[in-house]
Simulated assay, not measured.
Amino acid sequence: MEKTATLNLRVNPSTKKAAEDVLSRLGIPMSTAIDMYLKQITLTGGIPFKVVLPQAPDAINADLMTTAEIHTKLQEGFDDIEAGRVQDAKSAFAAFRESHK
């Protein structure tokens, strides 16, 4: 089918770049990916994936904790800092990425 319709849209530049990087590795041009997305909308009759708020595990979901439980978690964090059980963010994220390849 000939592609003759044009979409003009604004997106977050860093999101666009990240998506382009992934699509490049997959060998899929951005226009093809958008076309695939629109086709899936028509085939499924809606957004082709769940659109939900992320769910935090109950153990760290402050909305499910009492004030005392929140204070306990905070105190545990302060205790870790005082005991030197800390890691800078760069190292923590690097270790996370390495363990989740």
Rank of each mutant, 00 (worst) to 15 (best):
M1H: 07
M1E: 14
M1K: 02
M1N: 10
M1Q: 09
K3N: 12
T4Q: 03
A5C: 02
N8W: 00
L9C: 11
L9W: 05
R10S: 15
S14L: 07
S14C: 06
T15M: 11
K16Q: 12
A18Q: 13
A19G: 03
E20C: 05
E20K: 08
D21C: 03
L23S: 14
S24I: 00
G27C: 05
G27D: 08
I28M: 11
I28H: 08
I28Y: 10
S31I: 01
I34H: 04
I34G: 10
I34P: 13
D35A: 14
M36C: 09
M36V: 08
M36T: 08
Y37V: 04
L38F: 08
L38D: 14
L38I: 11
I41L: 09
I41F: 04
I41N: 09
T42G: 11
T42Q: 14
L43G: 03
T44F: 03
G45C: 10
G45Q: 05
G46A: 06
I47H: 09
I47E: 12
P48H: 00
F49K: 02
F49Y: 07
K50F: 01
K50A: 06
K50E: 10
V51A: 12
V52A: 15
L53T: 07
L53S: 05
P54G: 02
A56W: 05
P57K: 01
P57G: 00
D58F: 04
I60V: 15
N61P: 14
A62G: 11
A62R: 03
L64Y: 00
L64T: 13
M65R: 01
M65N: 03
T67V: 07
A68K: 13
A68G: 13
A68W: 13
A68S: 11
E69C: 02
E69A: 06
I70E: 07
K73N: 11
L74V: 15
Q75I: 01
Q75T: 09
G77D: 11
D79K: 03
D79C: 06
D80V: 02
D80H: 05
D80L: 03
D80I: 01
I81K: 03
E82D: 15
E82I: 07
A83S: 14
A83E: 10
A83I: 04
A83N: 12
A83Q: 07
G84L: 00
G84D: 02
G84V: 00
G84W: 00
V86G: 08
A89V: 15
K90P: 11
F93S: 04
F93W: 11
F93A: 03
A94D: 15
A94N: 13
A94E: 13
F96Y: 13
F96A: 05
F96C: 04
R97I: 14
H100V: 03
